[in-house]
C-alpha cells in the first residue's frame, strides 16, 4: 500500500466518520463542529488529488464562511440547544424525500459516469490553467464574471448598509 493510499483511507475515514457524527449528534453545536471536520477531510482529499487551490478554497469558503455562519446561527437562535426539543418537525417527510432523491441522483451519477481511473499525469501548472480557463472567452468567463459581479454587489451592499443615514 502506498503512502497515498494510506492517506486516502485516513482522509476518507475522517470525512465519512465526521459526516456520520453530524447526522447522529443531538447537540447541534457538536454536529456543526463535526461538519467542519468533514470539510477538512474533503480538503485533504483535494490535496491528494493534487488540487491544492481547491483545497484552500474548500477551507476558506466552507470553513471560514459557511461553517462560521452556521455557528453564528446556532448561537443566535433561541432554544436551539434545548435537549427537550427534537430535531425533527412536521416537515420531516419532505426533507427525507429530498434527501432520498438527492442520494438517488448522486448514486446514479457515480455508477453511470465513465470515471478515468488510470493514473494520468496531473498538469504541473494546474492553477495557471484554472486561472486562464476562468477568464477565457471560450471557457468559463461568463459564469465567472456573473459570480464576481454578484459578490461585488454583495460587498458594496454591505458597505452601503453600514453607511446608514
Amino acid at each position: 500500500m502506498t503512502l497515498q493510499q494510506v492517506l486516502f483511507i485516513i482522509f476518507g475515514a475522517i470525512t465519512l466518520g465526521a459526516a456520520l457524527m453530524v447526522v447522529t449528534r443531538r447537540n447541534v453545536f457538536h454536529a456543526a463542529l463535526f461538519l467542519i471536520l468533514s470539510f477538512f477531510g474533503v480538503a485533504g482529499l483535494y490535496v491528494l488529488l493534487e488540487a491544492p487551490f481547491l483545497a484552500a478554497v474548500q477551507l476558506f469558503i466552507y470553513v471560514g464562511g459557511i461553517a462560521i455562519l452556521i455557528l453564528f446561527a446556532i448561537m443566535l437562535t433561541r432554544d436551539m440547544m434545548n435537549p427537550n426539543v427534537t430535531g425533527a418537525n412536521r416537515q420531516w417527510w419532505l426533507a427525507a424525500l429530498v434527501a432520498v432523491a438527492l442520494c438517488a441522483v448522486l448514486g446514479w451519477t457515480v455508477l453511470n459516469h465513465n470515471w478515468a481511473v488510470t493514473p494520468g499525469d496531473v498538469p504541473a501548472e494546474s492553477i495557471v490553467n484554472l486561472g486562464k480557463a476562468l477568464v477565457d472567452p471560450a471557457g468559463l468567463v461568463l459564469p465567472f464574471e456573473v459570480a464576481s459581479v454578484l459578490l461585488l454587489v454583495a460587498l458594496i451592499g454591505a458597505v452601503t448598509i453600514a453607511r446608514e443615514r
Binding site: 467542519i36 484552500a56 477551507l59 476558506f60 470553513v63 461553517a67 462560521i68
Partner: peptide, 17 residues
Amino acid sequence: LSIGIFYVLSLGSGGMI
C-alpha cells in the same frame, strides 16, 4: 506551495473555529 499566501489566508478560518 503554489498557493502559498492563499494557504495562509485559508488557515485563518481554522483559527476562527
